[in-house]
Design a protein around this nucleic acid. Sequence first.
RNA 1: GGCCCUAUCGUCUAACGGUUAGGACAUAGCGUUCUCAACGCUAGAAUCCGGGUUCGAUUCCCGGUGGGGUCACCA
Length: 500
Amino acid sequence: MDKIEVRVRNAPSPTGLLHIGGIRTFLYNFLFARKNNGKYILRIEDTDQERLVPGSLENIVQSLHELGINTDEGPYWDNGLKSRGDKGPYIQSQRLDIYKKYAQELLDKKAAYYCFCTKERLVQLRQEQQVNKLPPKYDKFCLKFSEAEVAQKIKNGESHVIRLNVHPDHLIEFIDLVYGPIKISSNEVDDQVLLKSDGFPTYHLAVVVDDHLMEITHVIRSNEWIPSTPKHILLYQAFGWKLPTFVHLPPILSKTTGKKLSKREGDVSVQDFLEKGYLPEALINFLAFQGWNPKTEQEIFSMLELVQVFSLDKVNRSGAIFDLDKLDWFNSMYIRRLKIEELFARCLPYLIKTGIETGKYPKEFIEKILELERGRLRKLSEIGERVEYFFKEPTYDPQLLIWKKTEKQTIIKNLESLQTFLQTLPAKKFKRDILESETKKFIESEKLKTGEVLWPLRVALTGLEASPGPYEIMDAFSVLPDGKEQIIKRVSKAAEILFK
RNA sequence: GGCCCUAUCGUCUAACGGUUAGGACAUAGCGUUCUCAACGCUAGAAUCCGGGUUCGAUUCCCGGUGGGGUCACCA
């Protein structure tokens, strides 16, 4: 028995930046396609000409590319916007004649009818219904016109739309792969506009026609579409087409509002997250867990592993709150796993932004520094200010140099003898382990207290309350030709400042 | 408001009628430690409410309540 090839799609509107909640839907479609050796298609639904935002098509395609969600058909990014696939065009505004043809077919089948109602009448109708506490629905007013009347009105150039003719009092049922059986009365379904007066289709006509023509087998989309699924089913039935399998996904909610994550909430676009230093791998891993989980205790999954374990029957039905804390955790996990060269490459933009001219330093120096910070980073964007002290002499808060309740004099004295000790230590011995053992010997022989030496030393090197340890920092500096001098200079400067 | 969906720690979630209700994030404490991070240990923290069904309900059914969604010539 031949299995029908799985074909799924995502169909965003180019009305702005691709946003993070929406990505989860893309991800699940992609994972489902890959898991089933199917095809993953991107289609652009630009039938609302008023809401178009220039550049959003590029943003969508580019964002998907950066996240590693690769499409098989439709527009894609490869050093520029390209397109592929033999069931195109994949941009709805280029398919207008197709929709007209199918709208005509519905007209011929009496499944749809012309409507000449003005906006004013529709608004008034809705108001009346509201006052009378009736559900707001079109009242089929224009259904009464004879064919001759309709022809005359069209000939007169009256503005018109085409509406779906929904018959009352029957039940529309479908089985959702996530939500199970769903029943909705046709009385709840409005005589939806299918073709607008500007000749463009509405979403409902376009999505059904295209999903059929593009041989989509599974419609996987966010659950806010459940209420309009009956309209689509009615259309499939009117055309006599086979229904796809419907799969609705639970919503992703905002932590602050508890409502659907929306574009109005600030930085929610993929681009924003990438710019803040979230790794695509972390974003994908986190998003995969918003509404799905593998039923095991493993939490870290690469895209490849996700493909292997993903299945729609493990998708939840209840909404998930988007929690940045958890995302941050995933991100720090992925930062730790990065190869050092890759960490360098990915941190570079942030280092440049802080004004650090990495080109002026040995690669080994930068790499050692990044190695020190990688375990402390939640987001790559933090890297700049965290490592600035390596490139710029720190300024000191005298109070900070003092370890707990130690006497100021003691600290000064320790910094001074530390200076002499480091001076006498050969530059080639400025290696982490040697530094540690030599410094310990020094502390012991001078009968000093560890904290009273290491704390001021570390602060002298960094100017910071929190940082990696002094041995590691000195080890990194030792890579520079004047590393030892820089270290000693900082120690002496710190002592000076305390002395004042 | 009508209709639809939904309900386990603060958050993501596990437990397909019988568990001391498990894990992770976050939080707190302790240990390690010059600080931070990491790591280890520990703690607190949940089955919305009310009815059924059943020997037994987090789990199945009904009702309520809460939350979300949707009712456009937007998608």
